[in-house]
Design a protein around this nucleic acid. Sequence first.
DNA 1: GCGGACTGCTTACCT
DNA 2: ACAGGTAAGCAGTCCGCG
Length: 846
Amino acid sequence: MQSQVTSEKINPQETQIGLLLSVDYDGKQKKAILKFLSSDGNSIIVIPDPYEHKPYCLSNLTKDELLKINELTSLPSFDHIEEVEKFDPLSQRPVKMSKIVVQDPLGISGKPSGTVKSVLKEVWEADIPYVLNYIYDLNLRPGHYYELNLTNNTFKPIPLSISQELEARLKQMSLSSHLIDSALVRDWAYYLEQPIPEIKRASLDIEVYSKDPNVLPNAETPEDKIISAAFVDSSGKKIILLLKRDNFSEVSFDKFDATVEFFDDEKQLLIRIFQVINSYPMIVTYNGDSFDLPYIKNRAKLLGIPDEEIPIKIGKTQDTADLRYGVHIDLYRFFLNRSIQIYAFSGAYKEATLDAVSNSLLGKGKVVVEKPIGELSYDALATYCMNDAEITMELTTFNDSLVIKLMLLLMRISRAPIEEIARHAVSSWIRSLFLALHRERNMLIPNNEDILKVKGETVTRATIKGKKYQGAIVLSPKPGAHFNVVVMDFASLYPSVIARFNLSYETVRCPHEECKSNKVADLPHWICTKVKGITSSAIGALRDLRVALYVPLSKDKSLPPKERKRYEVTQRALKVFLNASYGVMGAESFQFYTPAVAESVTALGRKILTSVIEEAQRRNLEVIYGDTDSVFLKNPKKEDIDALTNFAFSRFGIQLNFDKKYKYTVFSKRKKNYFGVTEDGIVDIKGLIGKKSSTPDYVKDLFFEVLKILSQVNNEREFDEATKNIEALLKKQVELLKKRQVPLEKLAFNIMMSKDIEDYKKTLPQHIKAAIMASKNGHMPKAGEVISYVKIKGKTGVKPTYLAKPEEVDVEKYLEILKTTFEQILEPLGLELLEEKKSSNLLDFM
DNA sequence: GCGGACTGCTTACCT
DNA sequence: ACAGGTAAGCAGTCCGCG
C-alpha cells in the first residue's frame, strides 16, 4: 500500500519539491521565513513569506471607534485596521470584528506597554505565536510536501494521493461505522499517509574545560574554553574537533573511526563548528537548547566573532536555541515530554538524562570518566565527547528513525512546526490543532476567560482534596483467587464519550433554550442538539482514525512488516493526542479549558460503567472488579460477553470489547492492586509494591520469582504445592539478608527527587535526607534525578547507597518490607507464610 | 515527655 | 502545566495522660 507524492512536470531549474519543516520569523526582514527540506533530504530551502502577511489581533470595537484611539494608532508598530466577519462559537452567531494589523509581532502582545493588547481592554487571538498564526492563515501543513518556485519564491501544496486500497478502506469506514466527521478523517488520513523522508542530520556535543568535576559550566557565564566538539551524521560520518593545549602531547588517532582536526585557537575551532552546523538541514543535540548552543554562541561573541557569522539564534524569553539555516532539535526536551515518555515509549526510561534514555532505548550509555574534563588526554576527551554525539545521533536513527517519524506524524496531526513538537507538551499540540480548525472555519477563537464566564463553574465534588471535580469509579475488588476471569473494556472511553455526546466548549451549556432539556447524565449541564462541537469533531475524527483504520492496519498480517510498523507509529501518535484529549479540558492552563466539559465526560463515564455493571448483574454475572472503563467478570459465557457488548452499543453507542481472559486473578481488598495469570502463563501485575520502580531489587527479584511459581498454578489444589516452593525460596533469601550477604545495590530504594533539595520546605522525606548526605560527599543531586539509598540502623535511618556499608543495614526494616510486599498477594490466597510473632520478629517458618 | 491517632506530604501507580 | 482516584511510607502535629 505504498503511497506517493505526485506533481506536475517539474523543471528542475525553477521548481523543487520540499517538505515544510519549520516557520521562523526574521526580525530584520519583518517577515515569516519558511524552511523546507529538499527532496533528497540533504538541505534546507529557505523561502521568505511572499504574501506580505502581517501580525494582527481582533477587537470587537468598530474601525471608526478604534481609529479614534490615539494611543492605538500612534503605536510605532501600528499599520492599519480591516473589518472582518467571524462566527462566534460561544454565542453561535456571526460577529463583526476589527482586525488590527501591525508591523511586528512584538506590537501585538508580550510586553507591558507599547502593544495593542496593552492599549485595548479586550482583544482576541493576540496570544497566538506569530509563526503559528502564519501557518493557520495560509492553511499550511507542516510536515507536508510543497512545490517550490525558487524564481519568485512561491510555493503551493502538492496534490495528495493515496493507494487504492487505502481509499477503499476509507470508503468502507464511512459506510460501515458511524464516523463523527468523515471529511476530517479523510483529510487527516491523506496527510498521515504521505511518505516520510530521510532527513540528513548531524548530532553535536561539546566539552568545556573544567578542573572541578562538581562545577558545571553555565551558558550564561562562558568563562572556560570549548576544548572539543564532536559531530556524527546520519550516514555515519564522524568529525572530532580538538583544541590544542599546553602540556598535552598529540597522540595517534589512527585507529579512531572519525576525522580528527586540531586547532591552535578556540576561535578557529568555533568557526569550524559553524561551518559544519551550516552544512546540515538538521542539528540534533542533547540539552543544546540550554547548554551547547548558547554556550557556543556566547563564547563566540566573547571572542569577537561578529553576530552575523554566528548561525545560532537564542530565544528571548524561553530557553531555546534555533539555527539560521537548518532546524535544531534538542532531544532532551523531547524525551522529557511526559506523553512521549509514557505513550510513545511505554515508560521505558524513567529519567530524561542522555545516559538513562540511551541505556533504556539503545542498551548503551555514557562513557565513565574518572578525571575532570580538563585533565583528560586528547584521546580520552575525544572518546568521551564522540560517544555522546554518537548516542545522541543513534537516538534519532534507531528503530528505522522512529523518533523523526514520530515527530513528523505529530506535526501532521497538530499542524505545528517541528520546534513546537520538540519543545512543547501535548497540550500545546492539541491547542495548535484546535486553533488551525477554528481558522479554517473562520471561527472566532475565544479567550480562556470567555469560556469560563459562561461555563466556569463545576457542579460535582472531587473525592480527593484539592481537585476540581469528580472523576472515575473504582469498584472494591472481591478479595481472593478467582478462576476464569474475563476482562471487558471500552476502547478509549473518554474520547468516545466526547465524540458520541458532542462534548465541546461551545456545545455544553449552549445558548439555545431548546437544548436545555438534553441533560448530561444526572448533572444540570445540557448539550447542544443543533450544532456539532468543534473539539468533539476533532477528537472523534482522531479516534475513528486510530480505532477503525490504523490499529487494524498495524495488525494486518497480510501487509509487509515495514508498512505495519509505520502504521504502528501512526497509531501511537494518534494515541498520544487521544490520551490527553479529555485531560486538557480539565486543565486550567489550556486555552479551551472548560470544567463543565471535563466533569461531563467523567459523569458520563461513571454512568456508562455503572449501567454495564448493572446489566451484568441482571444476567447473574459475578463482577469481581472494575476501574473507570473496565469490568472483570467471573467465568462468563460467550453469550454473556456478546450481550454486554450489544447492551453498551445500543444504549450508549460506545464499543465495549472483550479485552483478555485470565486463568486466574488474585485480588486483595485494595483497589488498583492485583495480578492475573493469562492462559499462556503470562503474569500481569498491577500496582503491587513488588512491581514499583522504587522497591529494592532484592525484594523485586524475589517477588517476580514467587509470581513465576504462582503462574504455574492451574487450580485451587495446586496452590499447596506452590506454597512449599515459595516457602523454600523465601527462607533461603531471608538467610542471605540476615547474614548481610545481599549486595547493597540490591537493597537500594530508588526514588525520584522531583524538585531541587532546597525546595523541600514542608517535610524532609527519606530520599531527600539521603540526597543531602550525598551533596555533602561529592555528588550534588539535581531535580529529576533518582536517588539511591539504603535503610540503615541509627538516627538518620538512611544513607546514599554509595556511602553505606553492609554492617549498617537495618535488617529488621527490610524483613518488614518483605512482609508487606508479600502480604499483598499471599494474604488473599489464604497463605500465611509470614506468620508474625508479637515482636514482629518475622518469618515464623524459619 | 511520650506515644498513639491523625493529617499532610511525597512518590508511584491505575485508568 | 492533560485529568482524577488509590496505596504506601513517613514527617509532623495534636491530644491525652495525675
